[in-house]
């Protein structure tokens, strides 16, 4: 393939990644405002942090071509991929320990996991 075709294909690929990533980003940010409580908002933030962020980074990688910039973007993507679940888990666990429970909880098996007390004891 000649360079012009490759550039066109890269542009199309990054356009698709930007569109899908941007849509997920906006939906996630909208969900962060719309959903009723902190537990459901965790999932909206998850949409922004995973699909939205990674797809936009992939789109930028297509724009950059094969260079050092791509490597740096890939590093940022890998870092977000590893840390965003940890941060989400930290927020969820802190809210759980603080005694905040989801509204209209359909099924609750937390007693099964952490024993009789619904409040775990902490030794700082």
């Amino acid at each position: 393939m000649d360079p012009v075709t490759i550039e066109l294909l890269l542009n199309i690929a990054s356009g698709i990644a930007f569109t899908v990533g941007g849509v997920f980003l906006l939906i996630g940010a909208f969900g962060l405002v719309r959903l009723p409580d902190v537990w459901s908002r965790l999932h909206a933030a998850g949409v922004v942090d995973t699909v939205g962020a990674e797809l936009i980074l992939v789109g930028m990688m297509f724009q950059a071509g094969f260079s050092q910039t791509t490597l740096k973007l890939a590093l940022i993507g890998l870092f977000l991929f590893v840390t965003s679940p940890t941060a989400t888990h930290a927020v969820a666990n802190a809210a759980f320990v603080a005694g905040i429970r989801p509204v209209r909880l359909r099924r609750n098996e937390s007693g099964e996991v952490i024993g009789e007390s619904s409040h775990k004891e902490f030794q700082p």
């Binding site: 995973t50 679940p85 940890t86 989400t88 888990h89 996991v113």
Partner: peptide
């Protein structure tokens, strides 16, 4: 981490 990474499910404890 995989459970948390998937939107819709979060590992709490």
């Amino acid at each position: 981490n995989s459970i948390t990474l998937t939107p819709g499910t979060v590992t709490v404890e």
